[in-house]
Structure formats: structure tokens, C-alpha cells
Design a protein around this nucleic acid. Structure first.
Length: 485
DNA sequence: CAGCACGGCGCG
DNA sequence: ACCGCGCCGTGCTG
């Protein structure tokens, strides 16, 4: 019984097995790192100056809410005063100054229990601000400023400086056919033994954190471009963490959904809200909380955490959080969730037992994670360890599967390259692989990669499926990353 | 001026 | 008191 290249599923600690798996991806990530991915620096610069203008306006509007008697308590940096044409008196990037304005001067969130920072002061993080977004008109302004500041500094400003200029002959043979003279490419490092879960990491720059979740953010992603004459082929596992949970917990309630291809989040919504027709499930009102609960529960969330998350989600979707969305409601929702998927809690309990019994847990491939906190005398440390134990096998399995898929896709890439077709791996983002493929071959390579992904858990000898849950993957063919053509 | 801790936030 | 990462600006210190 073996997967690709002799990797096995011992379901017991097996460091030799995961060592071989970790080594298998080295040729691919080495090639990804050396070859790099092309960006459009002019586009990023243009986006960055747009953000700068909006930030200056927002900062001025925020400053206008400072009570006159408190003006001397603030000071914006010289550069920011200049950008705001001399009228700014607050540095909106300073959490300290925002905290003073919101909580000391404007009494925002006075009637709520808000999260505090390590130093015991009220946090100005997004979760807290979403909870008191209605208290004062300055709160949404701060959030809008924050979004732009993050996107500008971490991406528009930082990425172009890390790109290297490549003459076209160096980057790809297909470029010879193009009028484009050169490309700017980012050469990310992918450390393989950094993340405890067995995931790859990414740094200098981190390309696993390129925005996508907001409208503004996905405009950054569009700065990543296919080389001339090629397409970006992006293949990812579809809903894989839920599928892995279904297998690991042997949860028939989940497995039967995946076998017939029924969206588990829609199912959760129908069962917990008492809706009888899938068409009546609202994408935001019902499906979103169900989806969040699915992921939150996997990570050991509390009703308080889930509540803050959902309030933020609703604001983000442009919906004022409904009155019934309370911590109490979230508590009941979590209970309902476990009623709908009754095999999950017993699975978690087994993970807790293993962590306490052995001091470590492992995934089906044999990767181990030590959980020393379970022996702590501090209850919150124990709980911290139990959450890690609960989450580990799901995240780790996901990582092993992606690495198996990557190693097998490498055969597709190198075989075609030998045959004179331009195919090159660019990135891996946790549950997806992105490659650059000569125009005419993009669709076919995408289909081959999808096949690799969906059969990654098949026995190589008997073709028997070694995972209880069917595996599905999606493929996108793009000219720019996440900007459908 | 460089280095550091912190608060905050981007992604899966 | 939601898991796993890496990186930004601020504010302080040597």
C-alpha cells in the first residue's frame, strides 16, 4: 500500500516517511524560486499612489473628529502632514494615537467588553472596531485607512523593490516571440522545515499572503502577470480541509455530502436555520455563518470569537449585523453544528486524549507535533495545547497532499519541457499550485494537474482510494493572477 | 542609526 | 481564549 513515490499512510509516528515526502518537493521549489514570478511594477506604483491619495483624505477626515481641547495630544509625522496638506494632526497609522482618540476622547465602545492587548490596553484591531462600528462615524474611516495602509506598504511599496530585472532570453524561450524586452521577477524563498504543520512557508517576499479577500486587495493580485506567450495555470483543492476532516473523523454525515457533491456549508445552513430548499439559502445571511462555523470549530473557536468574526463578515459584505446575531446565538449555533455532524466532537476528544497520553499527536503520514502545554498547571495553556492538537492532523494532511501533488506535477512539467513545450512551476500557496504554461498547452496541462490532484490519495499499485472522502480540485487559466480573462 | 517588541493584518 | 505563517509601521532603547 503506497502513494506516489512510495509514500505511505502508517497512521503512526513515522519521521522517515515524512522526511522522504519533504525532500520530494525540493526540485520543484528550487525551480520556482530561481525562475521567479513576473510582476507589473508600473501598475503597482499607480495603485500605490491612488491609495496614498485616499489615505491622506481619510487621515484628514479622522483628524477632524479630534476634540479641540485635545489637539496638542497628537502629532503626525512630517511626511504625513505634507501629504495631507498641513491639516493632519494625527498619525492614523499609530495604534496608540487611534486608541487615544477612539476610546479616551470619543468613548467608542463604552458599553461593550472589548479585547485588550498584551499591555492591558483596549485593542484597536479590526475585530474590536467592527464590534463598535456604529458607535461613531470615525470608526469606519479608521478601518478604510487601515485597509489602504496595509495594501500600500506591504505590497505596492515593498514588492517592486524586491523584483529583479530579467532580460527576456533569460526568462523563457517563448518570450523570444514577444515584443516585450524584459520582465521584473520576484524570487521567493520557500523554507520547507519552518512550519510545524509541514506546510511550506514563503518569504522575501511572502507570496502566500498576496491579497484576494477584498475588492481593493484583489487589485494587487492582478499585478502578477504571466510571461508573454504564456498563461497562469492555477490548480487548487476544493474545500479540502472539510474533506480531510470528514476522512479523519470518519464522519458519515460529512462523507455522504461529499459523495453526492452537495455543498457542506449549504447543508449546515439548511439544517441549523431549518430551511428545506437549497435555493432559499442566502449566500451571506445563511451560508457565510455556516462556513465560518465550519472553519472556526476546526480551530477550536469559542462563541465569543465566532461572534466577533461574523460581525466582521457582515460589515465586510455590506450588511449591518442583524439583531439576532449575539454571542448567545453563536453558542447555540455551535451546538447545532455538532448535532448536524455528530462524529466530529468524538474525533476531537480522541485528539485531546492522544495529546495528553503521549504528549504529541501525529497525522496519517506520521508527522508529529509535540504538545507540551497539556502538562501545564495553567488551564489556558492546556486549552491552547488542545486546540493545537485538534487542528493539527487536518492542516498537516492538507499540506502532505499538496506536497504529493507538487512532486507528481513536476513530472508533467519536466516531461513537457523535454518535449519542447514551455511549462514551469511558479508558486505553491498551501493548497494550490500555480504554473506558467505556453498558451496553446494551458488547458491540457490544467487538466493533467487536476487529475493529479484528484487522484493524489489513490494507491499506486491497486488504484484503490486510500481516502474515504472524494477529492475535487478547480483549475483557472489566467493572464493575470485572479483577474479572469 | 540599528535593533527590538508590539500591535496589527495579509493569506490558507 | 481561532490554527499556521511573514511583514509592516510605530515607538522605544542602546
Amino acid at each position: 500500500m503506497a502513494l506516489y513515490n512510495g509514500i505511505t499512510l502508517p497512521n503512526a509516528p513515522d519521521l522517515e516517511n515524512v522526511r522522504r515526502l519533504d525532500l520530494m518537493v525540493l526540485p520543484t521549489i528550487n525551480r520556482m524560486s530561481r525562475y521567479g514570478i513576473a510582476i507589473d511594477p508600473d501598475y503597482l506604483a499607480e495603485l500605490g499612489s491612488q491609495f496614498a491619495l485616499e489615505m491622506a483624505d481619510l487621515q484628514r477626515d479622522i483628524a477632524s473628529y479630534i476634540p479641540a481641547h485635545a489637539l496638542e495630544r497628537f502629532s503626525a509625522s512630517a511626511a504625513q502632514i505634507e501629504e495631507a496638506e498641513g491639516s493632519a494632526t494625527i498619525n492614523a497609522s499609530s495604534a496608540e494615537q487611534i486608541r487615544t482618540l477612539l476610546f479616551d476622547l470619543l468613548a467608542v465602545g463604552r458599553d461593550q467588553k472589548l479585547k485588550t492587548t498584551g499591555a492591558g490596553k483596549t485593542s484597536t484591531g479590526r475585530k474590536n472596531l467592527d464590534l463598535c462600528r456604529d458607535d461613531h462615524p470615525v470608526v469606519p474611516l479608521v478601518l478604510q485607512y487601515r485597509e489602504r495602509a496595509k495594501l500600500k506598504s506591504a505590497f505596492c511599496d515593498a514588492l517592486p523593490g524586491k523584483a529583479r530585472l530579467h532580460p527576456r532570453a533569460e526568462c523563457c524561450p517563448v518570450c523570444e516571440l514577444s515584443h516585450v524586452e524584459h520582465t521584473f521577477r520576484l524570487h521567493t524563498e520557500f523554507p520547507t522545515t519552518r512550519a510545524i504543520t509541514g506546510r511550506l512557508s514563503s518569504r522575501n517576499p511572502n507570496l502566500q499572503q498576496i491579497p484576494i479577500r477584498t475588492d481593493l486587495g484583489s487589485r494587487i493580485r492582478a499585478a502578477f502577470v504571466a510571461s508573454p506567450g504564456t498563461k497562469l495555470v492555477s490548480v487548487d483543492f476544493s474545500g479540502m480541509e472539510m474533506r480531510d476532516l470528514a476522512h479523519l473523523a470518519n464522519a458519515e454525515s460529512l462523507l455522504k455530502l461529499f459523495r453526492v457533491g452537495f455543498d457542506p456549508h449549504v447543508n449546515t445552513a439548511m439544517k441549523t436555520f431549518g430551511i428545506d430548499d437549497p435555493a432559499k439559502v442566502d449566500k451571506y445571511l445563511h451560508r457565510l455563518p455556516s462556513k465560518r462555523t465550519n472553519f472556526g470549530i476546526q480551530n477550536g473557536t469559542t462563541e465569543k470569537g465566532l461572534h466577533a468574526q461574523l460581525v466582521g463578515d457582515y460589515w465586510q459584505a455590506g450588511i449591518t449585523p442583524p439583531d439576532w446575531l449575539t454571542q448567545e446565538w453563536c453558542k447555540g449555533f455551535i451546538v447545532s453544528w455538532h448535532t448536524v455532524y455528530p462524529e466530529v466532537q468524538p474525533y476531537f476528544n480522541t485528539r485531546y486524549y492522544l495529546a495528553r497520553r503521549y504528549g504529541f499527536v501525529w497525522d496519517p503520514w506520521g508527522r508529529c507535533r509535540y504538545i507540551p502545554q497539556v502538562y501545564s498547571s495553567l488551564p489556558y495553556k492546556v486549552h491552547e495545547g488542545l486546540r493545537e492538537a485538534q487542528n493539527f492532523a487536518v492542516t498537516a494532511s492538507n499540506a502532505e497532499q499538496t506536497k504529493l501533488a507538487m512532486a507528481e506535477c513536476e513530472e508533467i512539467f519536466t516531461d513537457l519541457l523535454d518535449a519542447g513545450v514551455w511549462v514551469f512551476p511558479l508558486l505553491s500557496v498551501h493548497d494550490q499550485i500555480i504554473a506558467e504554461v505556453e498558451d496553446d498547452w494551458a488547458t491540457q496541462v490544467g487538466e493533467q494537474m487536476v487529475h493529479v490532484f484528484e487522484h493524489v490519495m489513490d494507491d499506486r499499485d491497486t488504484r484503490e482510494r486510500l481516502w474515504r472522502c472524494p477529492i475535487r480540485s478547480d483549475c483557472e487559466i489566467l493572464d493575470r493572477w485572479k483577474a479572469k480573462d
